[in-house]
């Protein structure tokens, strides 16, 4: 029973693996559909642009694998950063492109306020009491993004973050979990959050 970290040429797989290994979760970095289909958990990390990310997933036929496993077979799934954004219906970075559509919504550029973009650094979560993320309410996590996920159904919002206005920081719907921030880079609380994901879905 192993966690598959999807490798599609979009960054931080090593950091995610390091966090899982610290937690004692058996894991593999892979782009092999067979390995991913046989895994118990799917982790979709990633940094970079939405369109490039989808292109890479499609090239290795992983888009269909993820939809089958997460949406149809309900395998525990966690998307991180770009991996959260790619589960949207549509992305816009750098141009409009269809996403995996596990959670309905659109990924758009953060509104220009007088604040600097990207939204970069440690910021605290606001999580309702009944959310999976409730234990981490008001705790600081590491964010680095210029686009945000505008979710159609507010019930799937697990936590928000305020940067001039409230943005979706985390998503949870059934077996699908996702964070805009980087738990694997968020020291103690980030590791605890990943631990909670694996324990809940053990």
């Amino acid at each position: 029973m192993i966690a598959a970290i999807i490798d599609y040429g979009m960054g931080n797989v090593a950091s995610v693996q390091k966090a899982l290994t610290l937690l004692g979760i058996e894991n593999v970095i892979s782009n092999d559909p067979k390995v991913i289909r046989n895994s118990k958990y799917i982790i979709l990390p990633g940094v970079g642009s939405f369109a490039q990310g989808m292109e890479n997933l499609k090239e290795s036929l992983l888009d269909k694998v993820i939809v089958d496993e997460a949406l149809i077979k309900k395998k525990p799934f966690i998307g991180i950063c770009l991996g959260m954004q790619l589960i949207a219906t549509t992305g816009t970075e750098p141009h409009e492109a269809p996403g995996l559509n596990l959670i309905r919504g659109k990924v758009i550029k953060m509104e220009s306020t007088n604040l600097r973009t990207p939204h970069l650094g440690w910021n605290e979560l606001n999580a309702p009491d009944d959310s999976f993320f409730a234990d981490f309410n008001k705790k600081d996590f590491y964010f680095i993004h210029s686009y945000h996920f505008q979710v159609d159904d507010e019930k799937s919002i697990g936590a928000t973050v305020n940067y001039g206005k409230d943005y979706v920081a985390a998503i949870q719907k059934e077996n699908i979990f996702a964070t805009q921030f980087h738990p694997e880079k968020s020291q103690k609380y980030g590791i605890e959050l990943l631990d909670k994901f694996f324990k809940k879905n053990a």
Binding site: G11, V47, L82, P118, S146
Partner: peptide, 8 residues
């Protein structure tokens, strides 16, 4: 920046 995203 186009390839990896501005943030990195």
């Amino acid at each position: 920046a186009n390839f990896f995203g501005s943030q990195c």
